[in-house]
Simulated assay, not measured.
Amino acid sequence: MTHSVTIYGFGSAFDDAKAPRDVDLLIVHQGTDLASCQLAIECKRRLAESIDRAHITMLSEAEEAHFEFIKTARAVRLGAIREDYFNVDLTALDAELHKLGAR
């Protein structure tokens, strides 16, 4: 099974604030198995390295569904990072964040 995570943005950097102070991201990973968690942790590490002022939350799909975080935070889907295309997908996500001015 190929694992993936979905990245969402929320907060001031994504709600048309004039001067956001930070970039809030949510990483939703598929499950609680070791491979899924390791992919989410590696994504968090790499995103934190490449995005100034990043605040990153990680939840499994089940946790997100339980807390309805995406709905409550009015988070917007930014993209997915697939295990087999990690660097390509991360580069595309970085470009998307730059386009949105959230970088």
Rank of each mutant, 00 (worst) to 15 (best):
A48Y: 10
D24I: 02
F69N: 08
C43S: 07
A75S: 09
R53P: 02
K44H: 09
G101I: 06
H98V: 08
A73S: 12
I27C: 01
T32E: 08
R53N: 12
I27S: 03
V28H: 14
A54P: 05
T57P: 07
F69A: 09
S60H: 13
A80C: 15
A92I: 10
G79L: 05
E83Q: 14
L100R: 14
V88D: 15
E63Y: 11
V28R: 15
I51V: 11
L47T: 03
I81Y: 04
F69L: 13
D22G: 10
I70Q: 08
G101Y: 06
L59F: 15
L39F: 03
H29L: 10
L25Q: 07
L100F: 01
A54M: 10
G101S: 13
I56M: 07
A35N: 07
L47A: 07
K44E: 06
S36E: 09
Q38M: 05
L25I: 00
L25A: 07
H29F: 02
T57R: 12
I70N: 08
F67C: 12
R46Q: 14
L93A: 02
I41M: 13
V28A: 13
L97E: 08
A40I: 01
D33E: 02
D94M: 08
E49M: 01
D89K: 07
A73G: 08
E68N: 15
A92E: 05
T57H: 13
S50G: 07
R45Y: 00
D52R: 15
Y85F: 14
C37Y: 03
A95Q: 12
A19K: 03
A92S: 06
C43I: 01
L78V: 12
V76Y: 03
F69C: 03
R82D: 05
V28E: 15
H66N: 11
E61N: 04
H98S: 15
L34V: 00
I27Y: 05
V23L: 04
L26G: 04
I56T: 06
L34M: 00
R46I: 12
Y85A: 15
D33V: 00
C37H: 04
P20L: 13
F67K: 10
G31A: 11
S36V: 06
D22V: 09
P20I: 09
H55F: 12
L25F: 09
Y85Q: 14
L26F: 01
F86N: 04
H55T: 11
K99F: 10
L93I: 08
M58F: 05
A48S: 09
L93K: 00
V88Q: 15
L34Y: 05
A40W: 01
D94Q: 10
L78I: 13
Q30D: 14
A73N: 11
D24A: 10
L34H: 00
D24F: 07
I56H: 13
I41L: 11
I41P: 00
L34A: 00
R74C: 14
G101L: 13
Q38I: 00
R45F: 00
E49R: 12
K44V: 03
A40R: 08
N87M: 11
Y85G: 15
L39R: 05
A19H: 02
L39Q: 07
E83G: 10
A62D: 12
A73Q: 13
S36L: 02
L26D: 05
S36W: 03
D22E: 14
